[in-house]
């Protein structure tokens, strides 16, 4: 028995692994930070998180070099066994560049492309509003569908896009889009700043069809305590919206 063991995979250049591990532990799971080259220690965890940062300094493009690392095939196998796999920001880029998201076929079917942003070119760090558009996956089950929450984003390549015909409609239909960028009232306006990077359909997070793998550009570990949320530091360590990502992950593991 005991706590569920989550592997936080550190690819060289990532920088969020510590606060991500902290979030995992704070909801009652245990977290092992595993380096990309510790291949023997990866398999056999109950779940996996690919944290944020700049693996390989985003060389060539964000996430692609890490997606080609041998450790990713191990993670793919674990995903096929139904284990929960969460990719946050750079982790999301790795999941997309490896084809694990949307995971409909084994090809790469989408991209998290360079932002289209009239205010700041390249990397952009800000707090956004998100509407939870699907709660039928391992990471958003504890939210209410349609709920509007705040989390921060910090990326230069987060524009979800695809040339795959009909893919976005398919994602919408199947409830695979779990979060969208919105205004504070939950409206998906496509203009900046409500859509901060030009993503198709304001997509901020996508899961696979089975619902056990999710790629999200916002950082839930940075919206874990109310102290972290702008204008809310009076509320100290009370739970902030990002916490429920990790709590949902824990709940999905308790189900079996």
């Amino acid at each position: 028995m005991g706590n569920k063991r989550i592997a936080v995979i550190y690819f060289p250049g990532m920088n969020c692994e510590n606060e991500t591990a902290h979030a995992i532990r704070a909801v009652g799971m245990s977290a092992d930070i595993i380096r990309w080259n510790m291949l023997d220690e990866v398999a056999g965890h109950d779940g996996y998180v690919l944290p944020g940062g700049w693996s390989y300094e985003d060389r060539v493009r964000a996430g692609v070099v890490a997606a080609r690392d041998p450790v990713v095939s191990i993670i793919k196998e674990e995903a096929e066994e139904g284990k929960p796999i969460l990719g946050i920001c750079n982790g999301a880029q790795i999941l997309v560049e490896s084809g694990m998201i949307p995971g409909i076929s084994s090809n790469v079917q989408a991209a998290l492309a360079p932002n289209i942003n009239p205010f700041i070119r390249g990397y952009y760090c800000t707090w956004v509003h998100l509407r939870i558009s699907s709660v039928s996956n391992a990471f958003t089950s504890l939210y209410k569908k349609g709920e509007v929450v705040r989390m921060p984003i910090a990326h230069g390549e987060g524009r979800f896009t695809t040339t795959e015909e009909g893919l976005v409609d398919y994602l919408e239909e199947k409830g695979m889009i779990s979060m969208k960028y919105t205004d504070k009232n939950g409206h998906t306006l496509s203009s900046f700043p409500f859509n901060p990077n030009g993503a198709l359909n304001n997509i901020a997070a996508v899961s696979n069809e089975e619902g056990n793998v999710m790629a999200m550009m916002p950082h839930p570990e940075r919206a874990f305590y109310m102290r972290q949320v702008p204008c809310s530091h009076k509320e100290g360590l009370s739970p902030a919206p990002g916490r429920r990502i990790f709590e949902s992950m824990k709940k999905s593991l308790e189900k079996d």
């Binding site: 060539v60 493009r61 692609v64 070099v65 080609r68 560049e97 790469v108 079917q109 989408a110 991209a111 492309a113 360079p114 524009r159 896009t161 695809t162 040339t163 795959e164």
Partner: peptide, 10 residues
């Protein structure tokens, strides 16, 4: 195909 370009935006 495997590294240098992503056909979805390039």
């Amino acid at each position: 195909e495997q590294l240098l370009f992503n056909r979805h935006y390039q």
